Simulated assay, not measured.
Amino acid sequence: MLDQTSPGTLLSELRKQPPLVHCITNFVAMNIAANVLLATGASPAMVHAQEEAGEFAAIAGALTVNIGTLSSGWLGGMEAAAVAARQSGRPWVLDPVAHYATSFRRTAVGRLLELGPAVIRGNASEIIALAGGASRGQGVDSRDGVEQAEESARLLARAHGATVAVTGVVDFVTDGERAARIEGGSALMPQVTALGCSLTCLVGAFTAVRPDAPFAAAVAALATFAVAGEMAAGKANGPGSFSPAFLDALAALDASLLDRDAKVFAA
Rank of each mutant, 00 (worst) to 15 (best):
86 R>W: 06
114 E>Q: 15
144 D>Y: 03
128 I>N: 05
135 S>C: 13
151 E>A: 13
102 T>N: 13
97 V>M: 04
115 L>E: 00
93 V>G: 02
114 E>N: 14
105 R>A: 06
103 S>I: 14
139 G>S: 03
127 I>A: 01
135 S>R: 00
117 P>C: 05
150 E>N: 01
89 G>F: 10
137 G>F: 03
88 S>Y: 10
86 R>G: 15
97 V>E: 00
132 G>V: 12
143 R>S: 08
144 D>Q: 04
90 R>Y: 03
109 V>N: 09
123 N>T: 02
130 L>R: 09
119 V>C: 02
128 I>K: 07
115 L>M: 13
131 A>C: 05
95 D>Y: 10
117 P>F: 03
132 G>T: 12
103 S>N: 15
148 Q>E: 15
106 R>E: 11
150 E>M: 12
111 R>Q: 14
142 S>A: 07
112 L>S: 08
147 E>I: 12
117 P>K: 06
135 S>T: 10
126 E>K: 11
122 G>P: 01
93 V>F: 02
127 I>Y: 05
121 R>W: 05
98 A>P: 02
131 A>Q: 05
108 A>Q: 06
146 V>K: 00
90 R>P: 01
137 G>R: 01
98 A>G: 08
101 A>H: 12
102 T>I: 14
97 V>I: 12
116 G>V: 09
103 S>P: 14
138 Q>G: 09
91 P>Y: 01
114 E>P: 04
101 A>P: 05
137 G>L: 01
85 A>W: 07
139 G>V: 09
96 P>C: 07
88 S>G: 13
135 S>I: 08
127 I>K: 03
90 R>N: 01
111 R>D: 03
96 P>W: 11
148 Q>R: 12
86 R>M: 12
107 T>F: 09
109 V>S: 09
115 L>I: 11
117 P>R: 08
132 G>H: 09
89 G>T: 05
121 R>V: 09
108 A>C: 08
122 G>I: 05
130 L>D: 02
119 V>F: 00
95 D>Q: 06
150 E>R: 14
148 Q>P: 07
145 G>M: 15
138 Q>V: 15
112 L>I: 08
150 E>I: 02
136 R>S: 12
146 V>P: 09
144 D>L: 08
108 A>G: 06
99 H>G: 11
147 E>R: 14
122 G>Y: 11
98 A>D: 02
113 L>I: 11
109 V>D: 04
143 R>W: 10
87 Q>A: 14
105 R>L: 11
113 L>R: 10
87 Q>V: 04
119 V>Q: 00
106 R>W: 13
114 E>F: 10
97 V>R: 08
106 R>T: 12
141 D>N: 05
101 A>R: 13
89 G>A: 02
100 Y>P: 08
110 G>P: 10
147 E>T: 15
139 G>N: 04
141 D>Q: 09
153 A>C: 01
